Simulated assay, not measured.
Amino acid sequence: MNQEHRITPAMILLLAVASGLIVANLYYAQPLVGPISRATGIDPGSAGLIVTLTQIGYCLGLAFIVPLGDLLENRRLTVTLLGATSLALLGAAMAGNAATFLAAAFFIGLCSAAAQVLVPFAAHMSAPEHRGQTVGTVMSGLLLGIMLARPVSSLVTDALGWHAIFYISTAAIAALAVVLQLRLPQRRPEGRYRYGELLASMWTLLRTTPVLRRRAIYQACMFGAFSLFWTTVPLVLASPAFNLSQTGIAIFALLGVAGAIASPIAGRRADQGKSRSTTLMALLAAAAAFGAPLLLHGSREFTLVLLVLCGIVLDMGASGNLVVGQRAIFALGAEMRSRLNGVYISIFFAGGAFGSWLGGWTWAHYGWNGVLVAGLLFPLVALVVFATERPLNASD
């Protein structure tokens, strides 16, 4: 059944909620490394594997599972991945030793790549003149999932213990699989590839598609800045300068989700042929988010409010640029959207991983001002690349 150009507002909302619920699984464990490692007997020196294995699994899912969206029927692929995700989450919830939890963490990341099967699905069902807005709305749901996961898992753990968030997500993902099986239309790709040919073609797409390379560089820089900020800002908020509790830090993170409102706005502007100006605004917003705390100083209350505003502005820039980039690459052809999305997300996710590492390292060696300088470099690099872009190609 061909559902192209027939997406409804209810379906857009469903895909946005689904994407957010799925991708949140990647981030639930991040603020819970301490209690999980103590409960499962993970050595303190290896506790970072709790997060790292989830991220490695997700990257492998992007590279080896998401491209299957150009080969297999999309609804069945998505529902199958969600079933596997719910089993992995249940394994994490019930884990009593390090090996079991770490294996579950890997498969949570691997199967959560289902979120990136749904985004091209939404693009496929949208008319070209509304595709950017549709993708923007779905991505706003995904970004809300990223931003809400950490504070929600912290609050649930405070109330019910760390196992609870994984039991809750197990039930939520299982229910989501049933809903998507009932509500999603079938989508059978038209291309006929062997799996090996499909994977090999991803490198060819990257090598021969300038728009994909450029948009991936922009978003790798933006997600690097985003990850650096949200990795280190809890450390500065918990430091003697602010001395916020975990609940206070969770509230700070919740305020930052306001930045997700930029996604549908950016998508609508891209639909209107304003991709270049929207990209410039996004990159400048990220630069301002790191430049303002370097230049403006005041009382504890002033600085705290400034950091909240900078977090919102940075999130707006990262989410807006992400949507413009996806709108651009999805316009390249329906038959390769899943592979384009897999390459795009993989590259910018690598930028995010580098940003997280750089943030922690810079905080340890140079403090908060060093973090701000490092964060500022990301959008500045993107702006240098942006300056080489020809305006005629900006909306593609």
Rank of each mutant, 00 (worst) to 15 (best):
I56M: 14
L21Q: 05
I345W: 03
A92E: 02
D158N: 13
L184R: 09
L307D: 03
A24F: 03
L307K: 05
T52A: 15
G351R: 05
W230H: 09
A289M: 10
L392W: 04
A115E: 11
Q272E: 15
A292Y: 08
G355F: 08
L307E: 01
L280R: 14
S86C: 15
A104W: 13
S126P: 05
T100L: 15
N369Q: 15
T134A: 12
A289D: 07
G48N: 13
L148G: 02
R213S: 07
G320R: 07
G83E: 07
I168K: 00
M147N: 10
P120W: 06
R337Y: 01
G375P: 08
G191H: 09
V178G: 11
A122D: 00
V305T: 15
I7P: 04
F64A: 08
H5R: 14
A250L: 04
S37V: 10
G267E: 11
A123G: 15
F226L: 14
N243T: 11
L144E: 01
G267K: 09
M316E: 01
S19V: 09
I108T: 11
A159K: 06
Y344K: 02
G61C: 07
E4Q: 11
A149I: 10
A114R: 08
A92T: 08
S338T: 03
V381S: 01
L244V: 08
G375H: 07
V373T: 11
E190F: 00
L377A: 15
V308Q: 11
L309P: 00
Y28Q: 07
V152H: 05
G291Y: 03
H365C: 03
G132D: 10
L254P: 05
L89G: 08
L87G: 05
S46R: 14
V135S: 10
G191P: 01
K274A: 13
Q181N: 15
R337Q: 14
H124V: 09
F354S: 12
V138Y: 09
L377E: 05
L254D: 06
Y28C: 07
